[in-house]
Each structure stands twice: as C-alpha cells, then as structure tokens.
C-alpha cells in the first residue's frame, strides 16, 4: 500500500502570506526610468539576492521595498501596510524598529565609538544607554568586533567597520535587513567574513535579508535570486 504524499505540484503551492512583497513598481527620476515593472515576494526568514548589472535598477528597487523611496506606481505590502502609500511617520517608525540597513560603506558616525554606533538605533528607540550598550556589545562579540568597541570607526579596518555596521543593522532585531552591496568595498576574505556572520546571525534571529549584489559569490549566500534587468523583474502572482 502506498501512503499518499503531500502534493509538490508547483501549481498548488502552500499559500503563505509573504512578509514583504512588491507588485508592478514603477519609478522614474526625471526622464530616467529606474523601474518599469518590478515585483518581488519574500517569506519570513528568507534570504533573497537581488542581482543585475549596474544601472539595472536594483538599488532603487531596494529603496522602494524599504520605504525609503516612494514608487510612482505599484504596491509594496509589508505586514498589512502598503509602504507606497503609508504616511512618512509610519515609514520612519518601520525603518527604526523593523528594518535594518547595511550599505557598501558602513556609514558609521565618525565621532562616536563603535559601541555607541551599534547602540544608536536602540537609543533612538528610547532604550537606556546601559541596556542599549549591553545589547550592542553582545552583538559585536557575535560579529567578532568586540575588541574595537571603544575605538572610533576611523581606527578600524574596512572589514571591521563593515562588521560594526552589520551589528548596527541587526541590533534592533529587525524582521528585514536591507543590504546594498555590503561587501563591495572589501577584499574577498573580509567580504566573506561579513557575509557569513551577517547571514548566520540573520538566520539565528529569523530575520529576512534582501541582498543587493552584482557578485555571484555574494548571491551564493542567499536562498534564491531575483534578477533585475532594465528596471524589470520576472512577474510574480498576487498583484492587483
């Protein structure tokens, strides 16, 4: 007797609500159209690489998905909110509490120590200095930069700086981390260390990561890739 097996037919996938999804985004800057029809859907805890050549629109796409840039048309669903239409205050709150950001150059505040930099998002959310710094220190140890806690960003190597920035992106325990070419300024060895620690820590905390990159070796740390070409992505279902 054969036991019935769960269906794996791609036509009848398990219906799960995506954590973050964009449908048919369009965005122009003046006469330049950055996005024409860009769509993407991410599950909770998923690591997705957004790939494509320079100028393909992948960074604009990331900014729209993160509520940093408003698209001209289309919808961005995040936990029941359409980020394309949400008020600025709601977007700022999301960016402070539920989203984490990591860019090619760490964008750390040069006047603050590394520990203060990592603790900063928690302080902005109203946490006391001591608890914020304790949490920041724990995460810095995890990312192997505990020893530069008292140093300023200018006194760190590039790889250390990016790991400090990664710690800052993770410190609020965000549900989504937006990383735009996070290893673009690093050599292979340091780049890998940043990626491995970033993705490991994200997986441990269940955070999703949207990783913009044009490098295949970086994309290999993701669960799947979405390719952006001339502001377009392959279509996905679910748009209205």
């Amino acid at each position: 007797m054969t036991r019935p097996t769960p269906s794996t037919d791609p036509a009848t996938p398990e219906q799960r609500t995506p954590l973050l999804a964009a449908y048919g985004l369009r965005k122009s800057f003046g006469l330049t159209q950055a996005l024409s029809t860009a769509s993407l859907s991410m599950e909770e805890g998923e690591i997705v690489a957004l790939m494509g050549p320079s100028g393909s629109g992948k960074s604009t796409f990331l900014h729209c998905l993160a509520g940093v840039v408003r698209p001209d048309a289309g919808r961005v669903d995040y936990a029941g909110t359409d980020l394309a239409r949400a008020p600025d205050a709601r977007l700022s709150a999301l960016r402070r509490t539920e989203f984490g950001f990591l860019f090619q150059f760490g964008q750390l505040v040069p006047e603050l120590s590394c520990l203060e930099n990592v603790a900063l998002p928690l302080r902005l959310n109203g946490r006391r200095r001591r608890t914020a710094e304790r949490e920041a220190a724990r995460l810095m140890e995890r990312l192997d930069v505990g020893d530069v806690a008292r140093k300023r960003p200018g006194e760190c190597s590039g790889g250390q700086g990016q790991r400090v920035a990664a710690a800052r992106a993770l410190v609020t325990r965000p549900r989504v981390i937006f990383a735009d070419e996070p290893t673009g300024s690093l050599d292979s060895l340091n780049g890998e260390k940043v990626l491995r620690l970033l993705t490991d820590t994200a997986r441990e905390s269940g955070a999703s990561v949207l990783l913009v990159t044009h490098e295949p070796r970086v994309a290999a740390y993701s669960d799947r890739e979405v390719v952006v070409r001339d502001g377009r992505t392959p279509e996905i279902g679910g748009g209205r």
């Binding site: 070796r217 994309a219 290999a220 740390y221 669960d223």
Partner: peptide
C-alpha cells in the same frame, strides 16, 4: 542564459554551504 545562471548559482550555493 537565465536557466544556466540559475543552475550555476544553485551549485555555488551548495559549495558555499559546504565551505561553512
């Protein structure tokens, strides 16, 4: 090219996991 890219990346993911 797209199909090949996906196949290559899949292989790269497996190698990246093995490396870890």
């Amino acid at each position: 090219l797209d199909v090949q890219r996906a196949e290559h990346l899949q292989q790269m993911r497996a190698l990246t996991r093995r490396k870890a």
